[in-house]
């Protein structure tokens, strides 16, 4: 093998290494951009126009395992299930930034809220809500509890809540919290008292 061929091979190998690092850089950049986009996507457009209404949210905190009551102003639509959905989206907005005291999966959203009779709400979440939710008994319980008590606090007729993922029943949220059952707001309320 001549010296010229060796030099050429060395140059090409260097180019290949450079391309490899560039590909890795691009891969990481795309992942970062996707996460950023998912977080920004949650700067959700209000579901309706009109004067903002004060709603009560129960915000979870992982560091001390508590739920804290807080109030925010949200523009609510007139229809009841749409109102419930808007309240839950306001709750999710608190959890979506990575700096949240209880971050949940990027891109998590509430697809719809259905009512069974007057007192039972079925909350249909998207796949990102469950797929990217941090796994853990307490972390998942905090999410479920905050959804149930927040709904009940803003729509007092709702006494039972069932959570679906992408329109389907799922065994657990992220390996721990039972999603096959209906949650009674009164039972969860007791848990929340223990957590506060």
């Amino acid at each position: 093998m001549t010296r010229r061929v060796l030099v050429m091979f060395a140059v090409l190998a260097a180019i290949a290494v450079g391309l490899g690092f560039y590909a890795l850089h691009l891969k990481r950049k795309v992942a970062r951009d996707e996460q950023l986009a998912a977080e920004q996507q949650r700067a959700l457009a209000p579901l309706s126009n009109g004067p903002p209404t004060t709603v009560t949210l129960y915000i979870a905190s992982d560091s001390d395992g508590t739920l804290r009551r807080t109030q925010v102003n949200v523009t609510l639509p007139p229809e009841r299930t749409e109102r419930d959905r808007a309240v839950l989206r306001a709750l999710f907005e608190q959890y979506l930034p990575s700096s949240s005291p209880h971050p949940i999966g990027a891109g998590a959203d509430v697809r719809d809220v259905y009512l069974l009779g007057d007192d039972t709400a079925v909350v249909d979440t998207n796949a990102a809500f469950a797929d990217a939710h941090p796994s853990g008994v307490l972390a998942e319980e905090l999410t479920v509890a905050s959804i149930v008590v927040t709904l009940n606090a803003n729509d007092s007729k709702i006494g039972r809540v069932k959570i679906l993922v992408n329109g389907q029943e799922r065994e657990t949220l992220a390996g721990h919290a039972d999603l096959r059952r209906f949650y009674e707001a009164s039972n969860i309320g007791q848990v929340v008292k223990d957590m506060q």
Partner: peptide, 24 residues
């Protein structure tokens, strides 16, 4: 430590005294 109730599977299905312990 803290003692809490949890909707944790499969605890509801256990026909014996049962606890779950999660360490952080």
């Amino acid at each position: 430590n803290a003692t809490l109730l949890a909707p944790l599977r499969p605890m509801n299905n256990i026909a014996a005294p049962a606890i779950a312990v999660e360490i952080a």
